[in-house]
Design a protein around this nucleic acid. Sequence first.
RNA 1: GGUCCUGUGGCCGAGCGGCUAGGCAGAGCUCUGCAAAAGCUUGUACAGCGGUUCGAAUCCGCUCGGGACCUCCA
Length: 488
Amino acid sequence: MKELSIYNSQSRNKEKFEPIHKDFVGLYVCGPTVYNYAHLGNCRTFVTFDIVYRYLLHLGYKVRYVRNITDVGHITTEFDDGVDRIGAQAKIEQVEPMEIVQKYTLYFHEMLSHFNTLPPSIEPTATGHISEQIRMIETILNNGFAYEVDGSVYFDVQRYKNVHPYGEMSGRNVDELIENTRELDGQEEKRFFADFALWKKASPEHIMRWPSPWGEGFPGWHLECSAMSTKYLGETFDIHGGGMDLKFPHHESEIAQNTACCGHKPVNVWMHGNMLTVNGQKMSKSLGNSFLPHELFAGEHPLLDQGYSPMVVRFFMLQAHYRSTLDFSNEALKAAEKGYHRLMEAIAKIDKCSPGETNEFNFVAFKSNCYEAMNDDFNTPILVAHLFEVVKVINSCFDKKMSLTQSTLSDLKTFIHELVHNVLGLKEESNESANDSTDHLMQLIIQLRQKAKENKDYHTSDLIRDELKKLAIQLNDSKDGTTWTYEK
RNA sequence: GGUCCUGUGGCCGAGCGGCUAGGCAGAGCUCUGCAAAAGCUUGUACAGCGGUUCGAAUCCGCUCGGGACCUCCA
C-alpha cells in the first residue's frame, strides 16, 4: 500500500504523512460556536474531517480526535461595540446563555449523527477549560509576548514577530496589513492594530464571566483551541483542521499563542476544508443563503423543490474534493441522489451474484486504485469514480454478462463494505421500512394484478399500478416477477 | 486596494505536460401487453489571446469572468 500524503496549508504542498509517534495520530478540529443552528456549510467541514478520521482509523492508526465546542460568549469584535453572540441570542430567546449553549450543542450533535459522522474522542468545551486558558495567558505574559491593559490581556504581535514569523500560513505580511486595514474605533487599548485579546474584561452586562488574575472577564476566541489542543494532544501534535475561513486570524493566532507559550510550533500538518457555496457564494448566515440541515432533509426551503436524505447529502459532499468549493443546488443534489441509490443498490446486489468459473475482474488493481485515490490527500471524488466502475462490474456479473469467481466476489464484498461504510461513512437508509403486514398486503395486490394481466385485463392491472404510484409505491416488473419499493 | 484561489461538455465535479475521470441529464438498446423501474452502450469540454514544448485543459504571460480572506465565520 502506498503512503498517505496530505496537503499542508503551512507549506502549500502535499507532504507524506508521518505521525510523531508511530501508529498514533493526534487530530484537532475547530468545532462550532454554539449560539445558533449549525448550517450545511458548517456540516461540510465536519464531514470532511470525519473522512480524515475514518481513513486514518482504517489505515490502522490509533487516533485521538479532539473537537471543541466554543461556548464562551465571545464578542464579535474586540472593540467596545462588540456583541456577545451567545448573550445576544439568550436575550432574543429569553433564556440563560448556557441554555443557548445546550440547545445548539444538542442540535449540532443531532445533525452530525444524521450525517453519520463518528463522535470525536474528546469534545472539550471552552467554559470547561477556563483555568487552562488562564494558565496559558500567564505563561505568555511571563514570556513577554502579552501585556495587560485595564483588566484585559492582549497578545503582543510586534514583540512576537521580531522573534517568530507571524502570518506565514495565511500569507499575511503584518506590515503590509497595516495599510490595508480599515480604521476601526475602540482599539486604543491595543499597542498595535494586529494584537488580539487573550483575556477580555467583562462589561457589567456580560453574563458569561470568570474570575482571573486580571479581574472578571472571559478568554479570547483563539485561546481555547491552543489551551485544549495542548492539554489533550500535547505541545506538538499531528493534524489540525478547520474551515478555510479560520485560517486567518484564528489559526494564525493559535500558532502564535502556542509558540509564545511553548517556544515551538504546535502542529505538523494544517488542513483546511473549503467552503460550501450557493450560486457561487459562500454559504453564511449573514448573507442569508444558508440552509439548515433539517430544512434540507424536509425540503422546507424556498430554493428546494424536494427534501434530500442525510446520506444523499453526505454522498454529494464526497463527490467533490474537500479543498474545492462545492456549489449547492437542487440539480446537483438530484444528481447525487440518483447516483447514491445506484451505488447502494449495486452493493446490495453483490450477494445475489452467482460466481463463475473464470475471473474477468482485476480486483487487485481496483483495490490499489482506491488506495491511491485516498492516499492522495483524501481524494474521495476519485474513489467514488472507481466505485462506479465497480457498479458496472457488479451489474454485469448479476446479469451474467461477466464472470467473477467466488473468491473475487467475496473479496470485493468485504472491501467495498469497508470502503463505503467504514471509510466513506455511507449507510443504507431504511426508507420507511415496510412492516410484514404491509408486505403481505402488497404481495396480495401484486398477485391480483398478475391475475388481471394473465386475463389480459390491462385496464385493471394498469389501474393498480397507477393508483399505487399515487401512493408513492413503485412496482418493478421483471422476468422473475414483480417487486415493489417506496419511491425515492 | 492587498494576499490567495478559481474558470472543464446541458448541470455537478475529478484530472493539472502525452493515455478514459465519474455522477446526473440527453440519445440508442435490452426487458415489457403498454409503460415505469432497472441494466447496458454512447456523443458533446477544457474562458479568450499569446508564449514555452516534439506535444498543454495541465507550465508561463496578458485579458476577461467568479470567489475567499484582510480581526463574525466551518
